[in-house]
Design a protein around this nucleic acid. Structure first.
Lengths: 350, 350
DNA sequence: AGTTGTCATGAAAACGTTTACGTTTGCGCC
DNA sequence: GGCGCAAACGTAAACGTTTTCATGACAACT
């Protein structure tokens, strides 16, 4: 093992051919005789030759790397998303450069700029991006796909989770389980997902329970805020007979409030969440919720981006949404379907 | 906005200086007059000039990127680890190239090889790596840090979680809470962490409860295996008065078995887990467990690697371990400390 | 036999930087 | 005023590839 890595010149010299030929055989460009191919391959293997990716992308202008810029995400969502992206990227021979953990516009902008020239395309999930942000920070010719974003751009495809449909389906489920007065615990006002879930709740109520009053209390996605919302709901003159929280953590907090007050779930009040986080299965009773296929989101996003990388494939930028399934457990008071859709979970390591 | 990105030559031409000077001012190498500096910076800003990283690393031989190859990890461990790494990398101006999701030696080897030339150093966490693997797949001069690995290499630093001490501390806690016959639900035989936790249990039993019998039942880190182990323990002629599971998921499964059998936790049998996954706080009663500071693991690993990148800093390769804290909740039957160490958790998005 | 075409191959340019080295300039000092 | 010296700056080589273009060989047609 030499201390210096072999270059294409070394291979060419050893194989007694030109560097051009070496390049040709290693890249599969045609125009080289089988026997020279054989020689070149042997020499390359013997010298442990690996093409220098810097030199390669200098001349080709491609890095075979895509960048993912993500906000400061925690837990399941984050890992599932990266997992989906990574898997799909690997399948296409693409590398993945991540940049997570940033709050604030400036931080996000820096992350995007820092990737300039290092990636062939970007996946962006950040509440801070809007049209102006993209214009200011993205090189004009760099393909990108936006995740969970409200921006409608003609230049960049957007990929969203169908929060509206998911929320709507859950309301429908609650109503069809015999509930009428479905209350909603909202998420942060500025959060795009929260907004969509709110809309889904309103739309579904108008459609499936037009006579029931809209009953929305504030929340911020935290367990604590769910607890407060639960107490607030219990204090109402006419209590709801079902509560739909905009995410699972708030549902868990709400459940705690109910437990403390001696209100039984689902007999007295049904309860449902959104996200299907791991905990949802382990609280008692197990929480009915809306399952988001996060890994799929990552996979589809990457596939969309990959198609953008091929200039010939010029499907126009569009907004695409990914459906989500409701998973019925015990808190919704409906019939507990034994074959409820259940994402396979592997044991946590280690 | 031009369609072609500006190069250093464009800047030089506009600023009426040579490319060398432009390079010098942008890199902060001295030897250039303040007023030319000013001009160059202005022009560079005006043209939105960003140095091409490929060209730069071609000549300098450095990529300012580090690679993380990880096994097919799920959930909290994964996200916390990447989080820690990313944060520390960002603080040092390093980029992060990840490659997760692979099982099998070949897969891991391919991942490592694919990073060749794209990174200045690597962080490797994989059960498949051993000395031979490293020799075969890592370029001779590439710095790397191994995580959670049994290999003792003179070339690569190793960073482990102190599973032994953590397990030992938990046993000590159980004993000091008045339990004697502490049983252990083991993890997968081949898993390094599981082995260390097993050792910690044995050592602590010998030290703190020398008269009690060792009581080890098999498990594989899955909830299901914990359930089976729980039933197995209940069937023993003399039941244990405490059960220590090698991870939280098994503890949860075990708790379910106890609940079904009408055995009260912790009154009849105390229970403890390992990892402090999010669920541990939400099962009832809340699970006592050993907290692993995963983000710290990532951070320290990256810092170690970063120090390896500076040739002048040549601290020798060594095996370093990271401590973990026990967090006492209700299942261990000890005094529930109100101020139990509690890692701050943020709400899951979205 | 001469012309044309195909095909494998090589020489060299190009990609955008950094940096070693050489050149100019300005300045103080004898 | 000539000399030396340092500071500022420019020239050009180097990094390791891909790719265009030219060259030569050889076969196939007229």
């Amino acid at each position: 093992m030499t201390t210096k890595n072999a270059t294409i010149k070394d291979v060419a010299r050893e194989a007694k051919v030109s560097v051009a030929s070496v390049s040709r055989v290693l890249n599969g460009t045609g125009g080289v005789t089988p026997q020279t191919q054989k020689i070149v391959r042997e020499v390359a293997a013997r010298l442990h030759y690996v093409p220098d990716s810097a030199a390669r992308s200098l001349i080709t202008g491609r890095t075979h790397t895509i960048g993912a810029v993500l906000p400061d995400l925690y837990g399941e969502f984050f890992s599932e998303l990266i997992r989906g992206i990574d898997l799909a990227a690997r399948a296409r021979g693409l590398h993945l450069l991540v940049s997570s953990s940033h709050d604030g516009v400036e931080d996000a902008a820096a992350a995007v700029r820092a990737m300039r020239g290092r990636v062939d395309g970007m996946l962006i999930l950040s509440e801070y991006v809007d049209a102006a942000f993209l214009d200011a920070n993205l090189p004009a010719n760099l393909p990108a796909v936006l995740l969970n974003s409200a921006v409608k751009s003609t230049r960049y495809p957007v990929l969203n989770i169908d929060n509206r449909a998911g929320a709507s389906a859950m309301v429908q489920h609650l109503v069809s389980a015999g509930r009428e007065r479905v209350a909603f615990i909202a998420g942060p006002k500025t959060n795009f997902d929260a907004q969509q879930r709110d809309k889904g709740y309103r739309a579904a109520m108008a459609k499936y329970a037009p006579d029931a009053p809209l009953n929305i209390v504030a929340g911020d996605f935290s367990e604590e805020s769910g607890y407060r919302a639960g107490r607030e709901l219990l204090a109402q003159k006419t209590r709801p007979d079902a509560v739909f929280a905009a995410n699972d953590m708030m549902a868990v907090g709400c459940m705690l409030a109910f437990k403390e007050a001696g209100v039984r779930v689902p007999q007295d009040i049904a309860l449902a969440g959104f996200d299907d986080i791991l905990i949802a299965r382990y609280v008692s009773p197990p929480l009915s919720t809306v399952q988001v296929r996060i890994a799929d989101l990552g996979r589809v996003a990457l596939e969309r981006l990959a198609s953008l990388l091929n200039p010939e494939d010029s499907t126009p930028a569009s907004v695409q949404t990914l459906g989500c399934d409701i998973v019925v457990r015990e808190t919704s008071g409906g019939s507990v379907s034994a074959a409820a859709p259940r994402r396979p979970r592997r044991p946590l390591p280690p």
